[in-house]
Design a protein around this nucleic acid. Sequence first.
DNA 1: GCCAACGTTGGC
DNA 2: GCCAACGTTGGC
Length: 152
Amino acid sequence: MNYWLLKTEPNEFSIDDLQALGPGIEPWDGIRNYQARNIMRDDIKKGDLAFIYHSSCKLVGVAGVAKVVEEAYPDPAQFNPKSKYYDPKSTKETPRWVCIGVTFVERFKEVIPLAEIKQIPTLSAMVLVNRGRLSVQPVRPDEWNTIMDMKE
DNA sequence: GCCAACGTTGGC
DNA sequence: GCCAACGTTGGC
């Protein structure tokens, strides 16, 4: 079992939206970055857990936890000309982009701010801290535990 | 809204 | 396959 971090802009989709789905499955679509895609396609497995991270908003940080319930499959949005994630270069025979399915696990009482995470020495190697721009990224078990301990 | 860091595109 | 130009991400 592995740990991940999934970024989302809460204006678009937040931990509250995920919670509102209850046991429902949310397709984690619209990922249009090759490195993030490769992680979803090759590494993320059913049963893995992921932090839901709120970016580009007032309170930037880790907002909760989701569980992977569907492994990578072609992202339907890439074939939909009306979607903002439409990719005219992708074909059904050789789809370029994939998504995964996640479900709600936990909403933290308070978002754990990025600023706070940056101050913890044992978290200084986190991809989140070192490499800003990657919307799907791995989290080490010790990093996972450290952040879970930062909750109220 | 600014801007740094990074990813992607496309000419050669 | 290099690299300049351009686009995007994302914290602040």
